[in-house]
């Protein structure tokens, strides 16, 4: 069996007006990968392709070494899927759904399911129509975890949740991944969701992977520099991943090895959000105007 939970090579999917272009990355067994990008970058498309919900145009997707479409049943025994778009029929209830899952999954653990349902206060017989968005997400997580998946595909599970529900769901996910046995692909555009969870990050911009790396290596590879516009080195700045320019100052994400090119600048360690936002700005145009950004934000 493969050492990787998921291996994606040259994955391409073409829609009208959008192309997921030659995406490749690998998810190690027992690790957590954050799949980040703006809305519409292609995160959900990748997860739907892994689930064989939509057909790829080209490339390969292997789950534990098996082709995801040719071995769909075997592959899906290992996968737990939680998305923002729920599959809960409003007139049904979680008790009934637990029966369906028990029927379909060899490793279904009724005791574990009941434990989660009690812990998260999910009324077993009340129809899903009475559940809040947060309760529906917790219901899907309870159903998913109770069949002991080896891989969790989380497609923006915190999207649309109120702050309290979001923190509760993230706490649950942190508990799950802390054992290190479950491989997780966590798609989100909220980079804060990945704090203390993710081991790896894959950045997706306009359907292309711009970076896929271990989070620990971000600070070894990249740096955020800032300085006055008067001292900017235009030749060096063209090597930056992304730049924000203001009237008097600028910020840029650069490769750490390029720091000497910039002379006297302030240097700080980037986080996941810096990596994502500067990558987006770098692809959107050469620069982003700091003043305009400030006006927009203010």
């Amino acid at each position: 069996m493969s050492d990787f939970a998921i291996e994606i090579e040259g994955l391409t999917k073409e829609f009208d007006g959008f192309k997921l272009d030659n995406v490749s990355f690998r998810l190690e067994k027992g690790s957590v990968m954050g799949l980040v990008g703006q809305n519409g970058a292609g995160k959900t498309t990748i997860i739907r392709l892994i689930m064989n919900a939509i057909a790829k145009t080209s490339g390969s997707i292997r789950v534990f070494g098996m082709d995801n479409a040719e071995n769909e049943v075997e592959v899906k025994k290992h996968i737990g899927y939680v998305s923002d778009d729920d599959y809960l029929v409003v007139t049904s209830n979680i008790k009934k759904y637990a029966k369906l899952f028990a029927r379909m999954y060899e490793n279904w653990d009724q005791a574990l399911f009941e434990k989660y349902a009690r812990q998260w206060e999910l009324p077993p017989k009340k129809p899903f129509s009475t559940y809040s968005k947060g309760m529906k997400t917790k219901a899907m997580i309870a159903l998913t975890l109770a069949h002991h998946p080896d891989i969790l595909l989380l497609d923006e599970p915190t999207s649309g949740l109120d702050p309290v529900a979001r923190i509760e769901v993230l706490d649950i996910l942190r508990d799950i991944v802390s054992d290190g046995n479950t491989s997780v692909l966590f798609s989100t555009h909220i980079t804060g969701d990945l704090d203390k969870i993710a081991d790896y990050i894959t950045i997706l911009i306009n359907g292309k992977v711009t970076e896929s790396m271990a989070i620990d290596l971000i600070e070894d590879k990249y740096a955020v520099i800032s300085g006055g516009m008067s001292g900017i080195n235009e030749k060096a700045i063209s090597r930056a991943v992304g730049v924000r320019r203001g009237a008097a100052s600028y910020e840029a994400l650069i490769e750490r090895k390029d720091i000497p090119l910039f002379g006297n600048v302030d240097v700080r360690t980037p986080n996941i959000e810096n990596l994502l936002t500067f990558s987006i700005w770098g692809h959107r145009s050469d620069t982003v105007d700091l003043d305009k950004e400030g006006e927009n934000n203010g």
């Binding site: 075997e74 778009d85 599959y87 809960l88 029929v89 379909m104």
Partner: peptide, 11 residues
Amino acid sequence: SFGILYSTMPL
């Protein structure tokens, strides 16, 4: 909802 549910299951 049923379509999405079935598509997530070993089916």
